[in-house]
Design a protein around this nucleic acid. Sequence first.
RNA 1: GGCGAUGUAGCUCAGCUGGUUAGAGCAUCGGAAUCAUAAUCCGAGUGUCCGGGGUUCAAGUCCCUGCAUCGCUACCA
Length: 566
Amino acid sequence: MDKEKYLVTSALPYANGDLHLGHIAGAYLPADIFVRYLKLNGKDVIYICGTDEHGTPVSIEAEKEGVSPQEIAEKYHNIIKKSFKGLLIEFDNFSGTARTLHHKLSQKFFLNLLKNGYITKHTNEHLYCPNCNRFLPDRYVEGICPYCKSSGARGDQCDICGKLIDATKLINPTCIICGGTPEVRETTHWFLDLPKFSDRLTDWINSRKEWKDNVKSFVLGWIKTGLKERPITRDLNWGIPVPLKEAKGKVLYVWFEAPIGYISSTIEWAEKIGQPNKWEHYWLNKDTKLIHFIGKDNIPFHSVIWPSMLMGQDEQYVLPTDIPANEYLNLEGQQFSTSKNWAIWISDYLQCFQPDPLRYTIAANAPENKDSDFRWRDFQNRNNNELADTLGNFVNRVLRFANKNFGEIPYIEKLNKEEQKIIDEIKHYAQEIGNLFFTYQVRKATRRFMDLARFGNQFFDKQKPWKNIKIDRDKAKSTIYLCGEIIRNLAVIMYPVIPQSAEKVWNMLSLKSSLVEYGWDNIGQRVGHSLQIGKIETLFPKIDDDKIEKQIEKLEKQSNSRHKKH
RNA sequence: GGCGAUGUAGCUCAGCUGGUUAGAGCAUCGGAAUCAUAAUCCGAGUGUCCGGGGUUCAAGUCCCUGCAUCGCUACCA
């Protein structure tokens, strides 16, 4: 029988800017940790993503810079890819929605839905800017609020009175892009007939036992209040053409085609590894665990619209098994904002720091059940007090002591009861932490492996090997052996969260197999021989106040100037 | 307006189906230790669990209400 298959995705980042910490905390780091854990367990798992490259913002950005949308998409695709690489977020495939393969598949999705009676056609009024030569998305229009008469209201909502607005009702509308005056024009669009899926969706969601309560209740509420038909096409030239003769100049709306990118990226992966049909083993297999990591803003799309799209196909696609939606990470108490440039950009971060301290800080305080806060001071504290002082120093003190007194980490064949307890304790930690990883409880898992490092320090202190080395060498020897075992196993346990440091530890112990090959199941197995100690390097250099203050200043400065970096 | 979330030690956060003296890490104070990235370990204190009602033998935990902060409200993606 085939191994259980896992197909893990993270929301496709939009290709009009770099990523910031908020993105990472919501959809990418938790997924990467989950995938790394599964891979340690030898599971059949692939991790799929790519950039979302179509739509108005990319097309406007291109005009601004005087290049083609394709070039903008490629530019940010590469920037984003680099950021992921720098943070050690490793996909099995990272594609892009502007690729031919994706276009074809998306068109097929559309045609299937149409053929199966899930798509309707309506003509409505929209604002059109004759100067820009394009229909304007609601948020690209500004004017006077028809309700409270204040100026500066956007086409979707008035920030002053908070009322939702029909863009065509705005008084004195202006185009945000060129400042011109838009006019009302009729246009025809195709709609996904969501109400037709209501019952199937409700049944399906009710059967999803593993979903988080907040996700489930939110979605059921959404369906209960009544689904509406939803437009899935746009008047735009940058996108996937609607595959109908009568739809000239119209493209599929990005939110319709973007999730299809999960599939096209998987197909691309299959082709790359020379097994072009292998994607079907995942997508057309009802036993596949399909897991979408997303931010909370994305819940309706992944739990209602996307499953509907899948249900409406001819093929029997697997439906999402779980949708671990995370809340938001705030920055120094305020919400991340691209437009206000209140953000820490990954490429900026990577110029100053290693990936692991960030991964650790975010993981230890991940916005799993509610919004959480990233603060530079907290980052510094976590690096200095926890990673460096507790974990790093434990590794360091043990290896140096071992090196000096034994020239290696010794091995002890026979353990007494007390000593065996240490090994058992390691196993207990691994079991608990493994369960936490498997159920996406990253923050608890992270805190618990730090507890294991504390446990190591406590054991070391209690045993006092620096004293015993003079009066009871065997006792010191067994202490160091056991501390070595804690370190060796801790490396495996912490690998999903801080892979770079885990590998460093692994290498310092001169182990033959790779860490990932060794795997989770072997945790608590005794090493069986002494270990040579490689070059002892500092795992986590301290981050001094200066460096942190600079970051805080920089944040204030960039947000005051309000210039978007990218 | 509608829907929802949150409000617990100086800070960041845990507290499941109500039940012993309300927890962790950091910060603070005291002590021990000196193998180690002046790192570690032990001990201590601290809280009208947002306010006000109510249910109950018993509420941080349930109900009502008020206040505060925040998010979503489906053509930004």
